[in-house]
Simulated scan of single mutants.
Amino acid sequence: MGRLEPQGDLMLISKRTQTFVYQILYADVSNCLPEYATLKAMGYSDLSLSF
């Protein structure tokens, strides 16, 4: 009682990992927004910026 099943432990670790990865990606994208806006203002398409 009170002890998680192995699947529960894995789900908890997975959720924490997803949160960590999300925070890293969010910070990286946030830091690049000014450059993205500049390229969009210069006329680059979404497709050309996705690669």
Rank of each mutant, 00 (worst) to 15 (best):
residue 28 D to W: 05
residue 29 V to N: 02
residue 33 L to E: 03
residue 22 Y to L: 09
residue 10 L to E: 12
residue 41 A to D: 14
residue 49 L to A: 03
residue 23 Q to P: 01
residue 40 K to C: 10
residue 11 M to R: 13
residue 35 E to M: 10
residue 28 D to R: 14
residue 37 A to P: 12
residue 9 D to W: 13
residue 5 E to A: 15
residue 33 L to N: 03
residue 2 G to M: 05
residue 47 L to W: 10
residue 17 T to K: 12
residue 2 G to E: 07
residue 4 L to T: 09
residue 45 S to V: 02
residue 9 D to V: 15
residue 12 L to M: 12
residue 14 S to D: 03
residue 13 I to M: 14
residue 22 Y to K: 11
residue 25 L to R: 14
residue 40 K to F: 06
residue 12 L to R: 07
residue 51 F to M: 14
residue 36 Y to Q: 03
residue 31 N to V: 03
residue 16 R to N: 08
residue 22 Y to S: 13
residue 36 Y to D: 02
residue 42 M to N: 09
residue 43 G to C: 05
residue 7 Q to C: 08
residue 29 V to T: 01
residue 15 K to T: 11
residue 4 L to F: 08
residue 5 E to M: 15
residue 43 G to A: 01
residue 30 S to Q: 11
residue 10 L to Y: 10
residue 26 Y to V: 02
residue 38 T to F: 07
residue 21 V to A: 06
residue 4 L to K: 02
residue 25 L to M: 09
residue 36 Y to H: 01
residue 12 L to H: 06
residue 7 Q to A: 14
residue 27 A to S: 09
residue 46 D to Q: 09
residue 25 L to G: 04
residue 49 L to K: 03
residue 36 Y to S: 04
residue 10 L to D: 08
residue 18 Q to T: 14
residue 4 L to S: 11
residue 42 M to S: 04
residue 26 Y to Q: 02
residue 6 P to I: 02
residue 30 S to E: 08
residue 22 Y to V: 07
residue 37 A to F: 04
residue 48 S to V: 01
residue 14 S to I: 05
residue 36 Y to W: 00
residue 33 L to W: 02
residue 38 T to R: 13
residue 15 K to L: 14
residue 27 A to V: 06
residue 36 Y to T: 05
residue 23 Q to G: 04
residue 31 N to I: 02
residue 27 A to I: 03
residue 18 Q to E: 14
residue 46 D to F: 13
